[in-house]
């Protein structure tokens, strides 16, 4: 691999890594507060992609304008899933909750399959198609924008969790559910908001990726595994770990893509996963919030 290719892949990987970071933050946030691994996170991301896709294809709405739309829509859907289904099993054994989110994933994914067909679709946005040249290196516009929006979302979320009353209530619930309830925090409502927030972040990640990759109903499937690898790498429930983990996975994936041909580079993520399981099963930063 030449130095040029190395640095070019590094740039590409880092930019994609930003999106992985926020995906992972969404997953880890839900886990941290409710102890749920949301299997449907990838499927929710896929729905966000289709909101942006259809908004662009049918109404010509720019992908970045439909971003708030897909975030709000998925926030509502997420809160409804929590209220309608998950709330009833919050005290059930872990594997039952896991099965429920697995069931939700199957329903969303396959409904999308029936409605939108398994075809791969992509959008071409005129003003995004040109690339930016930085010396010898090329940066694609949608990736750069996605990176900046992801970073802003991550920062905004950090500020929200640290400073706002609601954010403090969410962290309080994550630390000690009963204690939080005792001081008057309505834990049910916190759960709706957390799950909605997780879904909205997934939707933002999905919308940001729509101009970059081809989308299909089953795309969430690969992303949930990737996201889970990121989350495990950063330590379950660790928001900062998820952020750094996303960047690491993004870069490794891009470097592997440059080094190997075919779809074999898909394996790199899993190899990393197995290595983490062998050497640092609690993640590089350890668990906790």
């Amino acid at each position: 691999m030449s130095l040029w290719l190395f640095i070019q892949s590094l740039i590409d990987g880092l930019l994609m890594g930003g999106i992985y970071s926020i995906m992972a933050i969404g997953l880890t946030l839900i886990f941290g507060v409710m102890g749920i691994i949301n299997f449907a996170q990838g499927a929710l991301m896929m729905l966000g992609m289709y909101v942006t896709y259809w908004a662009f294809t049918l109404a010509g709405i720019d992908p970045y304008l439909s971003l708030p739309l897909s975030a709000i829509a998925l926030f509502i859907l997420g809160a409804l899933i929590q209220k309608g289904v998950l709330e009833r099993v919050m005290d059930a054994p872990d594997h039952n909750i896991l099965l429920i989110t697995f069931g939700i994933m199957m329903i969303i994914e396959n409904t999308a399959l029936v409605l939108f067909s398994p075809d791969f679709r992509s959008i071409t946005v005129p003003w995004l198609s040109e690339t930016i040249k930085m010396g010898d290196y090329v940066v694609s516009k949608p990736k750069l924008i996605a990176f900046f929006i992801s970073m802003s979302v991550a920062l905004l979320l950090y500020w929200f969790l640290q400073k706002s009353y609601l954010g403090k209530a969410i962290r309080g619930t994550a630390n000690n559910k009963i204690g939080a309830a005792l001081v008057g925090i309505k834990s049910k409502r916190i759960n709706y908001i957390t799950f909605g927030l997780g879904a909205a972040i997934a939707a933002i990640a999905g919308s940001l990726m729509t101009p970059i990759i081809s989308i299909s109903p089953s795309i969430g499937h690969t992303f949930i595994l990737k996201t889970f690898v990121v989350v495990v790498l950063g330590g379950l429930g660790n928001v900062l770990g998820a952020f750094v983990g996303g960047l690491i996975i993004g870069v490794s994936e891009a470097l592997a893509g440059a080094a190997f041909s075919g779809t074999l580079n898909e394996l790199v993520i899993y190899v990393i996963f197995v290595l983490i399981l062998i050497f640092r099963p609690k993640g590089i930063f350890g668990g906790g919030s």
Partner: peptide, 12 residues
């Protein structure tokens, strides 16, 4: 995919 929608509903 219709059978998998049914499976998802049954699981829940």
């Amino acid at each position: 995919g219709t059978n998998l929608i049914a499976y998802g509903v049954i699981i829940i």
